[in-house]
Amino acid sequence: MSDTLTEQKPKSVKPPKQKKPASLWSDAWYDLRRSKVFIIAAVMIAVLVVMSIIPGLFSSVNAFDPTTCDLTKARQGVSAAHIFGTDNQGCDTYSRVIYGARISIMVGVFSTLVTTLIGGLLGLLAGFYGRWTDTILSRVAEIFFAIPSTLGALLILALVGRENAGIWTVVVALSVLAWPMVLRIMRAAVMSAKSQDYVLAARALGAGPGRLMGRHILPNALAPVIVVATMNMGVFIAAEAALSFLGVGIQSPDISWGLMIADARNRFLQAPEALLFPALFLSLTVLAFVMLGDAVRDALDPKLR
């Protein structure tokens, strides 16, 4: 054994104040609370979530009410009455941007939930049982993986047709091709957790597969999956905007930032506000989730820093 310090640092050196045995999770939480990136991201996300649940808190104008739009005031710039200006239909851009948060957050959350549950469960099975279970699941995942997910989602939504498109079809279309990534990560994490001594010991003591997976393997394989899930949230939100922009995702009268960008596109040079504000919110939302993912990764896996 080489005795360079860098190697033995993690083992012998613990934060001196901590009394109880520091687990991965309590260590991670300790790190997170001290991370500026995490706090900024968490605050941004909290605001977005509130915005998507109770948009009325942020905007006195109900963006779903068509009577609030005034065609004679279309494509106005920033003013006191319309702080983000107005769009092609003369609707208030600010209230539409606020009301648009809901779709983004919902698509992000639900696509992440679906892919993490499916990919995570299958990854757990593939990693735990190995052999033919693993071979079959991995091969199938490889096939789904070979189709770039936005392209695949575009195909699915194009086939489903605009008349059937909506938030749930978008969630399904995004999830169908994105779960294999979670499977791969979960599988790798389970396989490495499986060969740890304490799991071998538990197995030797007669723990059944359910108990092994639930009590011993899953808690130790969860970290990388959580990191990827957090990061995927931002990816899904951006993908939803892209699909809606292309006309196959969310359809009017629902409000989506991608749809708003598409609507404002043709008059972009005359009235850039109607495009730039939803674009800004979209970027900030993605940024919040990317930052959160970064902070969580740093906390859960300091090696990757």
Partner: peptide, 21 residues
């Protein structure tokens, strides 16, 4: 044994320690 400083001393002689840390 590991951590006794024997390798660190050797690395100091060679001048291959990472400075810092």
């Amino acid at each position: 044994e590991s951590g006794s400083g024997k390798s660190v001393t050797a690395q100091a002689i060679m001048g291959i320690l990472d400075m810092p840390p």
